[in-house]
Amino acid sequence: MKSRISEVFSSIQGEGTLIGRRQVFVRFSGCNLSCNYCDTSKSRDPIYGEEISTEELYKKVNGLLTPDFHSISFTGGEPLLHADFIKDFLQEHDFKSLIETNGSLPDELAKIVKLINYASVDIKLPEHEASSDWEDLLDSEIKSIKLLSHEGINTYSKVVVMPSTSVDLVGSIASRIESEVEDTSKLSMVIQPVSPLDMWEDRTSELFKFSERAGEHLDVLTIPQVHKLLKVR
């Protein structure tokens, strides 16, 4: 089996609960959404990059392993468009892994959920993605979170906030996750202020409001994109 991958590289994880961990990033091509804050726009193109086999990917990953290697990050684009490829790769090669997904494809996630160790579900807001069916998208994202929670996967839901984002909306999403997910013991919500951070000058009080409202329902962290501060990929 082959899949199209835009790049494979080693770097430091700059987002979420694995922040600071050395990972090999496998960035898949193609995405089913079009978010206005996307910083990997080339990866939206389903024909961008190189089509490679699972064995070719293994050679690329193996050549990038370092003593501080923690895990593989399957990212994109949207990696779950390549769920069958990821399943084959992880069945063939025993690596710890993180899936970074928009959560819109829970049926594809179900194919690999028993093979992954960590998950990031990027919850979209109406201001992120020009979609008329935002409620359906949120339903799918929460279904994905429920699936991950049921399997005991260490998961965080990431919400990218802008200065214009409604605190009440973030709070209502956290409340809904709390009410619908049976076990939230391995689940956190990461509030990620959109980059560049200059946008948040004189607005840091808003970040406290997001954290406080989400914290009424879930374990919450506020983390910017640290890899951009470090000027690494």
Rank of each mutant, 00 (worst) to 15 (best):
Y37L: 06
F9R: 04
T222L: 11
E55F: 11
M199V: 11
K143W: 02
D136E: 14
K186I: 03
L229K: 11
K228N: 13
T204V: 14
F85K: 05
D198Q: 09
V226D: 07
E108I: 07
A174Y: 04
G76W: 00
E206W: 07
T40D: 06
K96G: 03
F9I: 13
V61K: 01
L148T: 06
K209G: 05
A119K: 01
P126K: 09
V226K: 07
G103D: 04
I116P: 00
Q192P: 12
H82Q: 06
E56K: 10
E141I: 04
K158C: 01
I12D: 03
E182L: 03
V170G: 00
E50V: 07
I123Q: 00
K2T: 15
V159C: 06
G14M: 08
S41C: 04
E78V: 06
G20V: 10
V121L: 02
P193N: 10
E127R: 12
K146V: 03
D198G: 08
E92V: 02
I142Y: 02
N32A: 05
M199Y: 14
L221P: 00
L221G: 01
N32M: 05
D88V: 08
G14C: 12
D183S: 05
L80R: 02
S11G: 12
L33P: 04
Y118C: 03
R27T: 13
E78F: 05
F25D: 04
I142W: 01
W134D: 08
R21S: 11
S3F: 05
S29W: 03
S166Q: 08
D88L: 10
W200T: 07
S6N: 11
R21N: 13
L105V: 10
S175V: 02
H217C: 06
P126L: 09
D68N: 10
S157R: 01
H227E: 08
K146Y: 07
L115N: 08
G20N: 07
G76C: 05
D45H: 10
A130R: 15
D168N: 06
G171E: 04
G76V: 02
K228S: 09
I177Y: 03
E92C: 08
P193I: 07
K209E: 15
E78G: 02
Q225T: 09
D122Y: 01
D168I: 09
E141Q: 15
H227N: 12
I19F: 07
H217F: 15
E212I: 12
H93D: 01
S185K: 12
W134L: 14
I145K: 00
Y37M: 08
S188V: 03
L138R: 13
F89M: 06
D219K: 13
L64P: 06
G171D: 06
L218I: 09
G30S: 06
E201T: 11
K60Y: 04
F74G: 01
E151M: 09
M1H: 13
Q225K: 13
V226I: 15
S179C: 02
V190K: 00
L64C: 07
D39E: 14
L221Q: 04
I112K: 09
F25L: 09
